[in-house]
Design a binder for these strands. Sequence first.
DNA 1: AGTAGATAGTTGCGCCCGCAACTGTCAATG
DNA 2: CATTGACAGTTGCGGGCGCAACTATCTACT
Lengths: 156, 156
Amino acid sequence: MQLSRPDTLVLERFAPFRLNRLADAVSVNLSEIYRERFGLEISEWRVLVTLGQHAECTAQHIACSTRMHKTRVSRAVASLERRKLLAKTSNTSDAREMCLALTKAGQRMYSALVPLALQRELSLLSCLSDTERRAFLGAITKLEAALQLSGGNVRA
Amino acid sequence: MQLSRPDTLVLERFAPFRLNRLADAVSVNLSEIYRERFGLEISEWRVLVTLGQHAECTAQHIACSTRMHKTRVSRAVASLERRKLLAKTSNTSDAREMCLALTKAGQRMYSALVPLALQRELSLLSCLSDTERRAFLGAITKLEAALQLSGGNVRA
DNA sequence: AGTAGATAGTTGCGCCCGCAACTGTCAATG
DNA sequence: CATTGACAGTTGCGGGCGCAACTATCTACT
């Protein structure tokens, strides 16, 4: 990488920039599904998916596993609640925590969304051969580990 | 990827999410340099780097090559101008365009920043072997092509 | 039991950014 | 020449998000 002299930075070859640009483009591409078809913002989409995976959990858990700021989670949850896609119930053992769960409508949306999203993921990666894809995802796994992104980490 | 049943989406294994999270973490990591040490926002950093590479160019060109919205470029340029890191001169052949260039102070900042940024890039990628790194960057190149990110594209 | 510190979640504030609309300039066409 | 449409760049507006501060609750320690 960066074959030029060490005193010149070519943005197009600078890995952090390329990664940012790529992730943004992929995000925009995927948002056609959750945004245009289902009217969800990315933070709401993440909350929905997390709840679809872990039937009941707290906002804190969602913040950890999605690495979103807790205020962002709070707002996404509030929005989903307004739209009756999600319901809160106060936890009896700890009144600070709210137990979050998808409503029937939320589950229906989840079930409709997931196959489309997985299909889009495949389509995005379809420009890579199996070997290339494995190498790509393997490298990402290593980078995640190096940056301590695996498992539930909080940023703020 | 996604070895589970096709009706469940595990966010931690969903490539678009992983890519987004990784790019964000890399961005935060890199921002220690341009933000904390030099007081630049990411958009300003990109403008600075682009001008360091192409001595004189227009805002439009910066928007294309960085894939930033033209208003974002406009504000970053205005901020850099206020800080005397950049100077505008009106183009004689086309009065609509502004010819942008770094000032001496801007060039000094650029020269101080670039080696640190390149070093940080190396450090970020140091968890990969040469083979892995080549495979990783190669895959990114293919994905960029598939998403038409290479070369100057405008999004808006 | 009572107090202090930690934790879950919400909200006011300010900043950044995209959208749409605007100004000013250029090129093409009559 | 005048007019129309395209283009470079700026700005008002609104929305989303992070930070800090807040409330409410739990836990630990005396």
